[in-house]
Write a protein that binds this DNA or RNA. Sequence first.
DNA 1: CGTGTTATTGACCAACATCAAACTTAGTGG
DNA 2: CCACTAAGTTTGATGTTGGTCAATAACACG
Lengths: 255, 255
Amino acid sequence: MGQEHQRLIRKLETIARLTDADRQAFNGLPLRIRAFEADTDLVRDGDKPSECCLLVEGLACRYKLLGHGGRQIMSFHVPGEIPDLQSLHLRVMDHSLGTLTRGVAAYIPHEAVGRITERSASVTAVLWRESLIDAAIFREWLAGIGRRTAHQRVAHLICEFFLRMRPLGLTRDGTMDLPITQAEFGDALGLSTVHVNRVLQDLRAEELITYKGGQLRIDDLARIQRLADFDPTYLHLLPDALEPDAFRPEGLASR
Amino acid sequence: MGQEHQRLIRKLETIARLTDADRQAFNGLPLRIRAFEADTDLVRDGDKPSECCLLVEGLACRYKLLGHGGRQIMSFHVPGEIPDLQSLHLRVMDHSLGTLTRGVAAYIPHEAVGRITERSASVTAVLWRESLIDAAIFREWLAGIGRRTAHQRVAHLICEFFLRMRPLGLTRDGTMDLPITQAEFGDALGLSTVHVNRVLQDLRAEELITYKGGQLRIDDLARIQRLADFDPTYLHLLPDALEPDAFRPEGLASR
DNA sequence: CGTGTTATTGACCAACATCAAACTTAGTGG
DNA sequence: CCACTAAGTTTGATGTTGGTCAATAACACG
């Protein structure tokens, strides 16, 4: 019933229409709140968690460490998401969940999630859909890393961040908080830090973005989308959530 | 109740334990059978399918066409899988499903799948798990394309094929049918055809594999796994299905 | 046999990696 | 409020993996 549940519900409302009963079910989930620092592992590769982790404040990512010392970030997560929802049905973690900034997490016992899904097919459908969108984003990243240039990849990721954060009220106009290092960008995009740096400079020089102090402004959305070959279909957002302004619910506002 | 249902059930048995009731539910699914040629789209980017597609015979893949003429293959599929299961909860396709060889598909109405999932939480759990493993494979590919060398990527994909096909009885000893062109390998791994060719030659020269006429034999599984940095955890196979020989059910046998 | 697809080879090239150093910024403690 | 430090960013020089182009060789199939 607190802010934490609202975060979750607001996020789910961007991808599915919830009934009152659905909202009640989510509201009833027991949460164990915990604050975290930046660069903390919330769940680790090989773990067999008995709870999921709702991100309430801050940024997180899922990543794998590879044999020869490399790291691949496979997803970024914003407040309201449950990055390790898959652990509900996959007992052992095949990757880690780590934080990028300080923030707040809320742990939900698997058992509690299992209870509301068994009780309601529509709650199940919403969460299943959420996990399928997660997979859709992996597919898009796969296509990007496999076949797009470095410039397109960076631009694409920026577009994605923006479209995901906007319906959650985490942007003001074209600006969002994105306190992510260039090394992290690189680990997500399969690029070196140095190259990310050069690409970002090019995007700035092209007057597509302004980026400093962890604040990113998109100066020309249409053009950066075109450069990135960005089509938001894969995010499977509801029409409301895709529109710039149609979606401005009260609370947790963008201010 | 036909061979087609058995394919599905056998595949699901590699990732989850089914109850008799589960098997019955799957057996009761209505199927519309259809043969297909190689290089046919079964479902296309942008479609809004009202049925899922069970692969009964042959090989298929999911892919995206990118703006500048590139293609990224995001997954390969073997008989018994439902490559577009996600369409159950994501109305519009964000990629295409195409065949690589001739074969047979069986279409299942979403409505029928919805019926058995609403009726049984355990059926739902199995299918949900299946879709989560799908996502886990995307993650692994992401890590590979992002951070592994071309040699590792090719080796990794070969290991994955082998471990996925073996529990389905699609291998004999170290050999499997893999009638895939080098261009397709490249589109899956983010490499050019030419480079795939050179890497395959290296693997042959290293006596890791034998590959001709669409037949691939793994000559040294341990060594190729090491080279690929391959850890099968991400496939989330049941212990039975991971063991070389513990899992040899009758029927549909490897002959 | 002929014809189209697939595999192979060679020459050349570009995007991006690596290495190393300098510079900036944000915190931190005095 | 300033010096100090560590983290992050930027720059330059150089190297390498893997791409591109183009031609040839092997097959597969009707």
